[in-house]
């Protein structure tokens, strides 16, 4: 209820501001909604968003898998952490734009470069979160697993993974939200499709309605992913916790 009211208030403020400004540069919510419906019907919006979403998923999956392995290794083995930490600091402070330019220059203006650039940008964040998770692993449970000679896969599935799940959920949440913003930059600079490309051409035409319609649609989509994928995963991973009244 509180959330619905809050969203309604945001739209109302936007509508009032649009009426007061009465300018092509601040379209009304209704105008944006009409554009969204029209673009949905023409199939342009789903197609472009599909391109962007595919890039987000591909690059984030790569970052998540590599980052989890690297983060786990760094959290568990101090020697690896000592050697790899300076690289991590360098990578985390490298501006996204620099990675993107280098990827396009070295690999070429293609899909591989685009996805790799985004993955490389998200990788250090995933590593940092997963390293904290691996550091917090309970040594007592590890000892129990060794004493009972549990197989490596059993250990991973029943002992390590459940302890890392909350970190994985936190990493996905913050990671997805920032990954799609970087994907837009990648598309703006070097792809012939996707939301970033559309925003770039809309910018050159000062088509604010189009820019807002794409932004709003993508925000709604990310909210849906959070509510229907990330949160259920989190709830399932946490089902053993005693419920607090």
């Amino acid at each position: 209820m509180a959330r619905a009211l809050s969203v309604a208030a945001l739209i109302a403020i936007w509508a009032v501001a649009a009426v007061l400004a009465h300018s092509r540069l601040l379209p009304s919510p209704l105008g944006v909604a009409e554009t969204i419906v029209a673009d949905l019907k023409s199939g342009e919006l789903p197609l472009e968003i599909g391109y962007t979403l595919a890039r987000v998923v591909a690059s984030f999956t790569i970052a998540l898998v590599l980052g989890s392995v690297a983060g786990y290794a760094m959290g568990q083995f101090r020697t690896i952490d000592r050697y790899a930490d300076p690289w991590l600091v360098a990578l985390i402070n490298l501006p996204a734009l620099v990675t993107i330019i280098f990827a396009y220059v070295w690999i070429g203006l293609n899909e591989t470069a685009a996805i790799l650039a985004v993955a490389l940008n998200k990788l250090p964040n995933v590593i940092v979160v997963m390293r904290e998770g691996a550091r917090a692993l309970d040594p007592g449970l590890d000892e129990m697993a060794r004493a009972y000679r549990l197989a490596p896969l059993t250990r991973l599935r029943h002992i390590v993974a459940p302890q890392l799940a909350p970190y994985l959920a936190a990493g996905s949440r913050s990671g997805l939200a920032t990954a799609w913003k970087i994907v837009l930059v990648v598309e703006l600079i070097g792809r012939p499709n996707g939301v970033g490309f559309v925003l770039g051409s809309a910018f050159s035409l000062f088509d604010m309605t189009k820019i807002l319609s794409y932004a709003v649609t993508f925000i709604v989509l990310m909210l849906a992913i959070e509510n229907f994928l990330v949160q259920p995963f989190e709830r399932r991973a946490q089902r053993w916790r005693p419920r607090r009244p």
């Binding site: 007592g140 449970l141 000892e143 129990m144 004493a147 009972y148 000679r149 029943h158 002992i159 459940p162 991973a237 053993w240 916790r241």
Partner: peptide, 15 residues
């Protein structure tokens, strides 16, 4: 073949 009981129960809270 070893059975061991630690000072703390050391059970998996998620199982």
């Amino acid at each position: 073949r070893l059975g061991i009981v630690f000072q703390e129960p050391r059970l998996l809270p998620w199982r």
